[in-house]
Design a protein around this nucleic acid. Structure first.
Lengths: 190, 190
DNA sequence: CGAAAATTTGACATGACTCAACTGGAGTGG
DNA sequence: CCACTCCAGTTGAGTCATGTCAAATTTTCG
């Protein structure tokens, strides 16, 4: 149940038996169905979510009432609204299952207690965030320098299997253009 | 010289005298002149840079040969190419002083040694990254939902003093539109 | 003071959006 | 298991936000 996470942690630090037990006692396992929300806009985000299996996304509802996907997560990624989590502010984000998924959640207060007991885990989370923030810098870089069509082809070439897993309208909003436009790119009509 | 950073760290964790000494022995102090680079595209980013005084930015050179600012940092912010730093890949970014600045740099290998000696600092860096990543999520969110004009007014209202400190062409590229367009927004001609 | 850099302005061009209509496929209930 | 619905995807026409380019003007700084 928690093995994927333990494996992921083991890539960065090693925990002994008692540390692992403390960790496991803190985690919550959750099965979520496709379209089910882990976080709803208007709530405070109290958790970080590790995707053990499946696929989830962050999105907001924009002024026109459309869903705007800002982030995808698949196996071995952490998703959260880190600003809301960090300072307890109300979130504008939804976190939603794109597929039926298995989630490992950690609650903020429990996480703090755990980190006090097992300080090594600070390192794990630091390294995970360092990598995620680096990826976010690249993401912004590509949003800035590529045209809509280039972004599609780049994404498609980089994650060919993933493109198959998600509906086009989610991908279009993630790549920051309209679903109609994605349809035209695919048809070669642009 | 290092006081700003010590104050910043003290907001998150407390260090005793010997820990502080180990930290100070690891840091490098740097004065950089306006336009001087801390990192040059094509290099590997071996440092994280804390801005003690002044203002710096990350930028890349795009296909058309124009500078594209992807991030600003002022007092009490850390700048780096975190992906290059994390996995030793070659960076596409420049990190450059926008004003004459005072920088505290920490080198990756030395940082690892320090973190082994003073594990508490893992927590400091984790919290800094958590906040930075949260800010990055908001940034992406606004890039997605606001028009060019809205982005300008929002930025201006959020950081009125800061707008005065930086040239318009840098702000335009940061907000992802052309300098001419920024000029027209300011003139009310749009 | 002079040269180089930054900003402004206007004319024109275009990438991507909107809207509306149509098509196709997946899920559901009778 | 068929028929119906509904949601996702497609297509085309028209529009608009923002870009490009070039020239004029202002500011900065050595």
């Amino acid at each position: 149940m928690y093995q994927n996470l333990l494996d992921h942690i083991a890539k960065f630090i090693s925990l002994d038996e008692s540390e692992t037990q403390l960790l496991l006692a803190t985690l919550e396992f959750k099965i979520v169905k496709k379209k089910e929300n882990l976080l709803h806009a208007g709530q405070i985000c109290h958790h970080q979510y590790f995707i053990a299996k499946g696929c989830c996304r962050n999105f907001i509802i924009n002024d026109k009432g459309n869903e705007q996907t800002t982030q995808f997560g698949i196996e071995n990624w952490w998703l959260s609204d880190f600003l809301s989590f960090h300072n307890g502010s109300v979130s504008d984000f939804y976190i939603q299952a794109v597929e039926n998924s298995e989630i490992i959640a950690i609650e903020k207060n429990n996480m703090e207690i755990l980190l006090a007991q097992v300080p090594k885990l600070e390192r794990y989370f630091r390294l995970v965030l360092q990598k995620a923030f680096g990826a976010s810098q690249m993401r912004i870089r590509y949003l800035y320098t590529q045209s809509a069509e280039e972004r599609y082809h780049f994404f498609n070439d980089s994650f060919p299997e993933f493109t198959q897993r998600i509906p086009q309208y989610m991908l279009a909003s993630y790549l920051d253009f309209s679903p109609e436009f994605l349809s035209k790119i695919r048809a070669g009509k642009v």
